[in-house]
Design a protein around this nucleic acid. Structure first.
Length: 170
DNA sequence: CGGTATGAGCTCC
DNA sequence: GGAGCTCATACCG
């Protein structure tokens, strides 16, 4: 019984890679639910790209289109209640906008947990759909990014948030 | 810049 | 079940 359920899950699982101008992006979907979006520092590409609604919209996004991912279903299993609140608050940041770690902490009713907010975002499995690149330090500093700070800079520049000289003073 | 306060989660005993 | 550690922070001098 457990085996059959596991099998069904595997059948519903789609994994593919997208070629973007910033590097390869790996995505994993289960049914209509985003399970993981990984920004890699890899330029090589395994081959065919599977077409799904999410992959098509991600490609549009990486081409510079203003795509809203806030209605996509995202897998939040395995996260603690605190982490879920952080990730949901982060999801509500619109395209081209930013918030600070502290503002996220305040929004979820735990104003001094700004440091824990950063730690939580470092564990975000679904980049872009949960736009953790839109969370910066409170003075406008970049903060960190687990996929590499270049990704954060590129995405923010693409969304029109950062002008070129801005990231020189990280 | 450097130090300190700070909270969530994890590991070890 | 707590001490001790790690973090993508904030804020002050």
């Amino acid at each position: 019984m457990i085996r059959e359920e596991a099998h069904l899950r595997v059948d519903r699982m789609k994994v593919t890679s997208l070629r973007t101008k910033f590097g390869r992006v790996d995505i994993c979907e289960e049914g209509a639910k985003a399970r993981g979006i990984v920004l890699t520092n890899d330029t090589e590409h395994p081959g065919d790209e599977m077409e799904t609604k999410l992959s098509k919209n991600l490609l549009r996004y990486f081409e510079g289109e203003r795509v809203d991912f806030s209605r996509y279903d995202v897998d939040l299993s395995g996260y603690t209640p605190f982490e879920v609140k952080v990730l949901q608050a982060t999801r509500r940041i619109p395209y081209g906008a930013v918030k600070s770690y502290k503002e996220i902490a305040e929004e979820i009713g735990n104003p001094r947990a700004y440091r824990a907010v950063g730690y939580t975002l470092s564990k975000n499995r679904s980049c872009v759909v949960i736009p953790c690149h839109r969370v910066l330090g409170s003075g406008g500093s970049l903060g960190g990014f687990s996929a590499g700070i270049e990704w954060k800079i590129n995405l923010l520049k693409m969304e029109g948030v950062l002008k070129d000289p801005d990231y020189l003073r990280a």
